[in-house]
Amino acid sequence: MSATTAAKKKLSVPFDYDKYLRPGKLPHIWCPGCGHGIVLKSLLRAIDKSGLTKDEICMVSGIGCSSRTPGYVDFNTLHTLHGRALAYATGVKLAKPELNVIIVTGDGDALAIGGNHFIHTCRRNIDMTILVYSNFIYGMTGGQFSPTTPVGALSNTSRYGNIEPVFDCCDLAKASGATFVARGTAYHTLELERTLLAAIKHKGTSVVEIIDECPVYYGRNNKFKSVTQMMEDIEKNGTVSVKQADKLPPEKVQGKLLRGILHQVERPEYCEGYEKLIAKAQGKG
């Protein structure tokens, strides 16, 4: 069976998203063509495959368009402050390690205002799954440049072209100590679903950067003609899967972002470490 027929077969089974959506909370706030909703669908399918119950999941977010996700889903949900989702999530997780904590955060939320929490959460290797929605822009505030906006790109605060170099979210996560680092896109929905499932299953801090699109602010500012063009140029043609990358000549990989699981190692997890500390403090260790 070829990869495409396998994909078709999977798609032919209708997935019941309603099982995970809160009744009466739609329509969502996202603009037509926004990638955030596509990512949510991949996430819900991954959660379904994980076998976790809705009661076992706590979804935490910061502030931004992407961070509105928890309001729509039927889990334990916490919509916090701009940049601080990981710190709130750390409190929830350490207080109740049996919860499976998933964080939804924008590139601005995670890497600019929340950058400090991002690196320290990765360093602790606390068992949480962090989804960073990289759309190269601050969507919620109306299109200012973010730490992922490419050099030269236009935004409402970089009218002469952005002069700031970008953060590579995955490199940053790996260097900070995250034990699972991956990248996906809103274009490759089935691959994203698999990546997210692996991230959720991984014990330790998992970071998944998801390249998606903000047609309204990034798209218009940078003269993309359509959402389709954006998705094809940035997500499809601007990335290459790690598996393909090995087989391709270097010039075909040059300048492209890698998709798939980029890094996975085992290292003591924070909450388990704390349980050992408790045993030691109580003279049982």
């Binding site: 706590c58 710190a87 999530a89 409190g91 929830v92 207080a95």
Partner: peptide
């Protein structure tokens, strides 16, 4: 982060 963590822990 500290005030955030205690708020999260309290909600748990």
């Amino acid at each position: 982060a500290s005030i955030a963590a205690i708020t999260g822990a309290s909600l748990a």
